[in-house]
Design a protein around this nucleic acid. Structure first.
Lengths: 180, 180
DNA sequence: TATTAATTACCTATCGATAGGTAGGTATCA
DNA sequence: TGATACCTACCTATCGATAGGTAATTAATA
């Protein structure tokens, strides 16, 4: 049985990804769970608390799914394929953006704790990708920041145009460049 | 002398880029221009009208700055440099995202007219880039969608991390790949 | 074991602030 | 005189947040 707290986090994550931080209210969440907004405040006193918790859980879940970036029995290609697949799956469920693309693009206007959580998301993800890349042939034009940028951008294009092919193209391109 | 309508558009563009569509109100705009919110409604009756106008002007301005994508006396490298420079300049003034990255990422929740304007932005920009790219050596791994994705993503990283180097790196990489 | 104390997870009701939007009046011009 | 560009004054709906209360569960104690 899934705790009410986690249900709130689920609704909030979906809501933020679809409409941004300012686009989802305590009442929206309460309505979706058939409860009162005051009860949502019980679990997360301030909106900043909720935003922070959503982003942190999102980050932890993603890194869990990605697994170790330095497992000896994985190739660079396999590691990057896991990364790309995570983004494709995220888009596929609900045709919505990466949470941290949505939030990161308006970072200056976010509550400090949420800002920091988003910052941490990107830091951890770039670090993961850098580690995953170590051992790649140096002549390949792959860099961690470039890969994350390309995925984030393609996700936005796909959402804005309602067409997954932008993300698919980047996936294919990355698969090719990461060799056999 | 700059018309009040254009001043509203200026404020709205900056506001949307920093805080998203839901993050800027008629009252915010009025306060910034030392007028009343009812007067903003005089120029743009509904928020949807304002959003649409902001995106359309943004798109037109960008394409104006980019110039013709098929001028005979320009190389592919020069054209792409203009594109990249437009994005770097957009970030530099206010360290804020591309308007259509902010809006596009929450597209499903935007008023229809704004959604269409954002869609049109990406369509026109990808078309421009495709034309600008024609004539490039086919062995280069450059595609219009990839370039736009990379720029949008890097811009988000730069805004979220408060560090322009993500955008700079993509710029450098693109310059290298587009040959002499 | 029975009683008490605390805690959990909600509720109703309300706060001041703010959202988008409107009706109708007023000053300034061609 | 009529259009333009504002204004005052207001509306309804919603925002995040808080106060105060209640039933059910759990922990501690006599």
């Amino acid at each position: 049985m899934i705790s009410k707290r986690d249900q709130i986090l689920d609704i909030a994550e979906r809501g933020y990804r679809q409409g941004g931080f300012a686009g989802l209210s305590f009442r929206d969440i309460a309505a979706a769970l058939d409860m009162k907004s005051a009860s949502v405040h019980y679990h997360f006193p301030h909106k900043e608390d909720l935003g922070k918790a959503v982003v942190e859980r999102y980050t932890d879940n993603l890194l869990d799914n990605l697994g170790a970036p330095d497992a000896a029995d994985d190739s660079v290609k396999i590691r990057l394929a896991r990364l790309v697949e995570a983004y494709r799956a995220a888009y596929a469920e609900g045709e919505s953006s990466c949470l941290c693309a949505v939030l990161g693009s308006v970072s200056p206007q976010l509550p400090p704790a949420v800002q920091e959580a988003v910052n941490s998301y990107f830091t951890r993800l770039v670090t993961w990708t850098e580690t995953a890349l170590s051992g790649a042939k140096p002549n390949t034009s792959l860099s961690a920041a470039h890969i994350i940028s390309a995925l984030q951008g393609a996700m936005i294009l796909s959402v804005a145009m309602g067409d997954a092919h932008y993300l698919d193209d980047v996936a294919e391109d990355l698969a090719k460049k990461s060799g056999a």
